[in-house]
Amino acid sequence: MPKKKRIADKNERLPSPMFDMGTMPYIEMLGNRRITVEGSTGILLYDSESIKINTCKTVISFCGRGMTLKCISSSCVEIEGFVTDINFLS
């Protein structure tokens, strides 16, 4: 009689993700007018033409015109304005 394989065994064999997704920032963009960054650890620079946001892994720099922070909380930042450039600085 063939031995039944446990489902848990199957899962164990699945390939593990390349990165730890939990610590990555989650960025949501509505065109280039509104950006929501979840997983921020702080604001490094706040200017109407440049905003730099620190996350766990990287620093994200947003360049543009008339940019404002609409909402700031301990882990989430919402930016509004005309974004022209996004850079990930390690």
Binding site: G42, Y46, T68, L69, I72, S74
Partner: peptide
């Protein structure tokens, strides 16, 4: 801004 956000203080309409 960072310190206030971490301490749960609500801040709105920040203008640089």
């Amino acid at each position: 801004m960072n310190i206030t956000a971490k301490n749960g203080v609500n801040l709105w309409n920040p203008v640089p």
